[in-house]
Design a protein around this nucleic acid. Sequence first.
DNA 1: TGTACATCAGTGAACGCGCGTTCACTGATGTAC
DNA 2: TGTACATCAGTGAACGCGCGTTCACTGATGTAC
Lengths: 205, 205
Amino acid sequence: MPKRGYHHGNLRQALVEAALSLIEAKGPTGFTLSEAAKQAGVTPAAVYRHFEGREDLIAEAARQGYEIFADVMQYAYDKGQPSAMASFEATGRAYLAFARKYPGHYIAMFESGISVNRTPELAAVSGRARNVLERAATELSAHIPADKRPPASMFSAHVWALSHGVVELFARNSPGTSSPFSPEDLLESGIGVYLRGLGLVPPDE
Amino acid sequence: MPKRGYHHGNLRQALVEAALSLIEAKGPTGFTLSEAAKQAGVTPAAVYRHFEGREDLIAEAARQGYEIFADVMQYAYDKGQPSAMASFEATGRAYLAFARKYPGHYIAMFESGISVNRTPELAAVSGRARNVLERAATELSAHIPADKRPPASMFSAHVWALSHGVVELFARNSPGTSSPFSPEDLLESGIGVYLRGLGLVPPDE
DNA sequence: TGTACATCAGTGAACGCGCGTTCACTGATGTAC
DNA sequence: TGTACATCAGTGAACGCGCGTTCACTGATGTAC
């Protein structure tokens, strides 16, 4: 998409994409408004036609990330239905798949320091993503005898934490943290053991 | 400890501590050499008597963190002995306790972007910490029938990922990520379910 | 105990840099007639 | 189809700022005799 003439045509989105690739390459710290503008073939001042400033641009990148994230989670959930277990496992896998496929978005969402409560819109879409996982956990918890059932929000938190930890420690070219296992295997096996611990998978499968 | 006269007395360590408190307060991004110097009551230039530069100062903060971390993990491990299970659980708890007690160190170690391979010394001490967890996992794995035993390095990775995820998502004043459960409860219960899944805890305990 | 001197740990001024942001402007586009 | 004009999306120069880093310096400390 060559920039033609004075007007860019789709600068707003081009800036978001430049921001994403910079964030992916250099971390949220390394991202600068000026560089994003440059990468989009435009003067830094032009950014202010479309965003309030640096933070606002990052927030928009994060928002788009949450949007994709929620869709991906929802899709995984639907695909697993009507099995609660299949839906649950699929959403876990989807979490990692998202982090790997959209690293720039992931960083903007979880590591850039922008708050999800920055705008109502951002809060809404992040809530939508979280709800998918919680719904899957709730349905799954119905299969556990009520007396030994942990709250659904608790094991949704467990899976979320495990997924996030795997992403941060093993799916990023982390500082010296290598492992003989792929992040996918780690998460898959980790969730497997966990579900067995909940009594949802026969112990000798 | 009032600064007296021209000479500071213990500037090197004072700078490390200033760096830690700044990193804790503002994230690794927010940390600046100049501010650390100011907080230690000294000119920015004075820093260069003790460190090669900004990065070097952060690295030293991280190094001290790893040192404490390794000690804490080792202590927890020892306290759990001779029970492999007790040692394993204790190291998991120690991980979270460390993250909460030394947030500045934790951030310098895991979120500042400095590589553990920056210096041999840093690599060594981080390896020491990791080894404690792996040893605990290895011993524990001896209690699992060999045919259904996952590699020890795998479940040490699981616990590490879970711990890290809990810290990042729930133990920090994270962006909108609140939970009705304390990080301690989340980690404790998560590890509990996990160990049950490994067949190391009776299913109806 | 007193003096001379080397060493050390700080100062403070200066640097070049890239940043985010502002401003008055101008070139391109689209619409009315 | 052609012209006038409003609107819009960009430019480019400028700003103030704080940063990390360097340098020649100086005040304090410690040691030798």
